[in-house]
Design a protein around this nucleic acid. Structure first.
Lengths: 191, 191, 191, 191
DNA sequence: GATGAATGAGAGTTCATTCAT
DNA sequence: AATGAATGAACTCTCATTCAT
């Protein structure tokens, strides 16, 4: 099966990159880790760039539907419950897919080489936040002009919190209420 | 004057790195951009590593005191005014030092090779936030256990907002109240 | 066969070094002479140092046993016959392995960078001479105190003679008796 | 005085080369040791090559007359006394000019780059030996055909002995009789 | 003349990519 | 398809040489 080798290559790439950084994911390091020959990589991917972007595409293909499903599943809730539910599910997804999340965050604002900005995991999440915020504006909770800034701020806070927990090896789902309460009601009001 | 060439080299390094990523800041790219020969770089710095870290050290030496001054200048204010004043000054500093801020953010969660975590610009800011949050906890505004998470969330929100404005070429000082009000009182309460 | 390329590289290194000196044996000169690309050298050796020392190790691995065998084969002879037989075989070995002998002599008293003194061809020969001389002293032919000086003098005379013949493109085995007779009985007594 | 700077440069070159090898005698190392600027070297010598060969020429200009004088002073003696006297004086010269002798020996059979073979210190000595040997042949002590080989053998023995003593930090004039007696009468006959 | 910063050719090394097997 | 040795462009760094001051 073709997919098996492809997967082995992408898994190897991810493993090396998470362990030692993207630059350490050389062709031969990937091949060795994947247990195949260097030349084999080129039977499945056009070049190194192609492997890296395929990795991001593949992982996104796994995670994006999960995020989309979380967005969809919570879309009918009232605003506050929606934010809370979506973030809760998001953190659960992050916890499940730790190593790619770590890689995505590492890569996020680094050089633009890797990915067109649009198809990033973090960008997708940002878009859901913008969607949710537009809903909040539609409900007159705040002016529509604040939507982009609100989305980015919440996104940034979430990311910072998640990366911190990740680097400490701690769970992050328990932070949901703290984050959401702060966001909705300000500090000092969390349950 | 000796500093002139040193500055030209560091400026060139910064420019190339901001434009095309740190990896693109090769010795020859830096030399070309700085308008000097390759060998000249080695009259001023021991090696490429030395150029990069000198860049970070030099910029931090410029910006760190500004941040420290902002932290100091606002330290006697009541909590809310303090947060607002510090963030306002921080955004003004960010605006003034745009290109290095961009670089610092790019580098921030990239592989650890570049810098010891402690001496990062973003780390310094995070520490000020933790300090401020400890003050908030001391004033019984929230439990002390929330200090680290609060500091990280505010830091993340600020960074996301600032990087967004930066990438859009927009001013960011005007976001101060939006950010602070949201932070203190939750969304929908901003002036 | 893997050895083929390795050999080509070492042969090329030796050829360049003998022709133009060790410093002229640059990576690219070696590669060109060997008819391979620069990168290929690094598939077989860790670095330039590694090539050079592999050359010396490889050649010594060829020649050292020959010398040891000559030493052994002649060890039971009476002193004079022993000296004569050993030097005769040594000169035959020198003739067979001309280009490396030339290189070994060139390197011999050059800066110490190249090789640990002990594992040198010339050092090995010197040690055999010291051994033989100790035997001479044991037979009361001369005081034991003269052993080191005698060994060095004979070694120096042999080397000078051999290098001269080598540079003239002449045979050197025919010099055996001249050298040995002079050594044993002084000038004017040779057969 | 022009000669003062020239001398300082050559002395510096010699000192560095003896201490750390010829390759370590870089332009800047020489300049620093000589206490002058890099550019100054080029006011006195055309290039690095020029400094090195000037060093050899200068030292030879010092030592060659001493050797010539020794050759001349001993030229009227009978053969055996002549050899003994010349070698005795030669070793005294070697002792006096240790550092250059060390350098000359290091350079002797290394790459040909440095010097035309003819103007070498060792070559000059060899020529004196050939001269002396021709005298011995003229006196019917041995056939004239042996002159070149005898000269080289004696030269090699002398050099090996001298370099050994040099590297051990021992005096070498005391070896005169050992060397000469061995040479004239064979081993085991020395006083 | 003396200075030493600037220069750039050239050295060693890495690694993505190719291709004969 | 799979292999992995061969390739050479690109990178970092050194150092002899130049030249404005």
């Amino acid at each position: 099966m073709r997919g098996a080798v492809t997967d082995a290559i992408l898994d190897a790439t991810e493993a090396v990159a998470v362990e030692s950084g993207l630059e350490a994911a050389t062709i031969s390091a990937i091949a060795e880790r994947a247990g195949v020959a260097v030349g084999t990589l080129y039977n499945y991917f056009p070049d190194r760039e192609g492997i890296l972007s395929a990795l991001f595409v593949a992982r996104r293909a796994q995670i994006a539907p999960m995020i989309a499903a979380a967005a969809e599943a919570t879309s009918k809730l009232p605003f506050e419950a929606r934010v809370r539910a979506f973030i809760g599910q998001l953190l659960a997804i992050f916890e499940e897919k730790q190593s790619f999340v770590r890689l995505a965050a590492m890569t996020d604002q680094a050089s633009i080489k890797i990915k067109p900005r649009e198809s990033t995991l973090m960008t997708q999440i940002l878009q859901v936040f913008e969607h949710i915020m537009r809903d909040g504006a539609a409900r007159k909770l705040f002016p529509v002009s604040r939507v982009p800034a609100y989305a980015r701020m919440l996104h940034g806070a979430l990311k910072a919190l998640a990366m911190w927990r990740l680097s400490e090896g701690q769970a992050m789902t328990t932070d949901t209420d703290l984050l959401v309460d702060t966001w909705l009601h300000g500090i000092g009001k969390a349950g």
